[in-house]
Amino acid sequence: MRVNLDEEQRLDIPMGPMIDCVFLLLLYFMAASQIKLEETYLGLRLPSGDTESKESLPAELTIAILESGEVLCNEVPVGARGDRELDVLRTKLSSVIDLFGNEQPVVVHPQPRVRHQRIVDVLNACSASQVKNLSFFANQ
């Protein structure tokens, strides 16, 4: 049914409450939003029954991490306590990978109280040197 409205009876959209609602929604989304930092990943493969290979592999390279933060590669110091970039280790790993390929086994052997950041520093150096066959030494 068509309703004829006079000029005075014209229907108006109530803008005030609508703006209130929109502002409330805006405030909610502004408060609830947070900038999400993208996480990155350093991978390793754990030994399991399925992945055991019978192929002969070259002798493994052992990277020891001491509680003091010092890093040794086959018992040779390659990183001091505050050295986060571990350039000497990277150079050594790169030369080994160039010689034997990236299937060269590398075993990371941290002492029990070594902090995770220091282990990640070493894994980061391994990643930069294209080490693919990485594993952890299990302390008894």
Binding site: L37, T40, Y41, G43, L44, L46, S48, G49, V120, L123
Partner: peptide, 19 residues
């Protein structure tokens, strides 16, 4: 935790980091 993951026969492990 790594030992528990190995015990569950999962070989692929990723460590979360920030850039």
């Amino acid at each position: 935790v790594l030992a528990a993951v190995g015990e569950a026969n999962i070989a692929s492990v990723l460590f979360s980091t920030l850039e």
